[in-house]
């Protein structure tokens, strides 16, 4: 079986989707290169899952078109389904079947030849550290085991394009790292991966290309390095005892920074590529001006910072009314 010669793994343009009064997608363009990891990064309700559902033939777009592995997701949905795997937000496995039975069921429904199914199921149970419990009903599995089985199920037919909708949400640190390694291995074997995430770190660590999604549109796109270059690699937050003190601090330190510091109530936020150096200079200047912060935070930028930088809004709030407010943290 050949996959569309010369076409990207995913090629979508102008995707629109409306649910009642909500416009989940408002013109999304996506292009995913073969053998790469593409991350859709955005808060809850941004439209990431809707985009995945369109690309995996679960829903039809109201407008626009998408081709996955060289086939149209609406007109050639069946051909697309031969070439994709999806692991969604909840572990979509049958709790009453065993791990082996779940994988074999998917193998049969994915139209694998009978002789390929059992070895493939065994191989995947091994790979996802489930070979100690192949014949136990899945309802006795832990949450992490179920999630691993779910990803394994998506891989049964060796799909050239794999979709992972928030694959690590709710996983503990170790399980998350294991899953990241698995994704890297799959990509090394030639699989193209489209994943959604709310975590900047996840996109940063895994993806070759990141698209930041907000309210149904892509507001920024590029390699993780390109996105972070707009942002600075370190965020410094200074809490002062009053808004006036914060405003004075903001103007005191502005001179030595490439990016203008932002102020929110009594907090001043500085983003920089040269964190430690800038921190020393900032504290010196504030000391000289007799402005002593009451709190100090130094950290890597989060999705919220990306959002703030790109939209002037915080990412956590889903409600449009809250988004339109004065910028106070929800």
């Amino acid at each position: 079986m050949t996959l569309g010669t010369g076409e990207p793994a995913v090629d979508a343009s102008g995707l629109h989707k409306r649910f009642g009064h909500t416009e989940a997608l408002r013109g999304v363009d996506l292009r995913v290169a073969w053998g790469s990891v593409f991350a859709l990064l955005g808060p809850n309700g941004a439209g990431k899952t809707t985009a995945i559902r369109v690309l995996t033939t679960l829903i039809r777009p109201d407008a626009g078109s998408a081709r996955v592995a060289g086939f149209d997701v609406v007109r050639q949905a069946r051909e697309v389904r031969y070439r994709i795997g999806l692991a969604g937000q909840n572990a979509a496995v049958d709790p009453n079947l065993t791990g082996t039975e779940n994988l074999r069921l998917i193998g049969r429904l994915a139209q694998l030849p009978r002789t390929h199914i059992a070895p493939r199921a065994g191989e995947l149970l091994e790979r996802f550290q489930l070979s100690h419990a192949p014949d136990r009903a899945v309802r006795t599995y832990s949450g992490g085991m179920r999630r691993r089985l779910d990803v394994a199920a998506a891989l049964v037919p060796r799909p050239p394009v794999l979709f992972l909708d928030e694959p690590t949400t709710g996983l503990d640190l170790q399980s998350r790292n294991e899953l990241w390694n698995t994704i890297r291995e799959l990509v090394a074997e030639g699989t193209s991966v489209v994943l959604t995430t709310q975590y900047l770190e996840e996109a940063d660590r895994l993806a070759h290309h990141v698209a930041v999604v907000d309210r149904g549109v892509i507001i920024a796109e590029g390699t993780p390095a390109e996105l972070k270059a707009q942002l600075g690699s370190t965020v410094i937050e200074l809490g002062l005892d009053s808004e006036q003190a914060a405003a004075r601090s903001q103007s005191v330190v502005a001179g030595l920074l490439a990016r203008a510091p932002e102020r929110e109530d009594s907090t001043v936020r500085i983003t920089s590529d040269d964190g430690p150096r800038v921190l020393i200079d900032v504290l010196r200047l504030l000391d000289a001006a007799e402005l002593i912060p009451t709190t100090l935070t130094v950290r890597e930028p989060s999705l919220d910072d990306v959002f703030l930088a790109l939209t002037g809004r915080h990412s956590e709030s889903d409600q449009p009314s809250a988004l339109a407010s004065n910028g106070a943290r929800p």
Binding site: M1, W34, Q111, G190
Partner: peptide, 22 residues
């Protein structure tokens, strides 16, 4: 990252008559 066609061995998937598959 290559834009060349990726070929899956055809034995990996069986195409059956729609009725048989159903």
């Amino acid at each position: 990252m290559t834009s060349a066609a990726i070929v899956i061995p055809s034995a990996d998937i069986e195409r059956r008559l729609p009725v048989v598959a159903a």
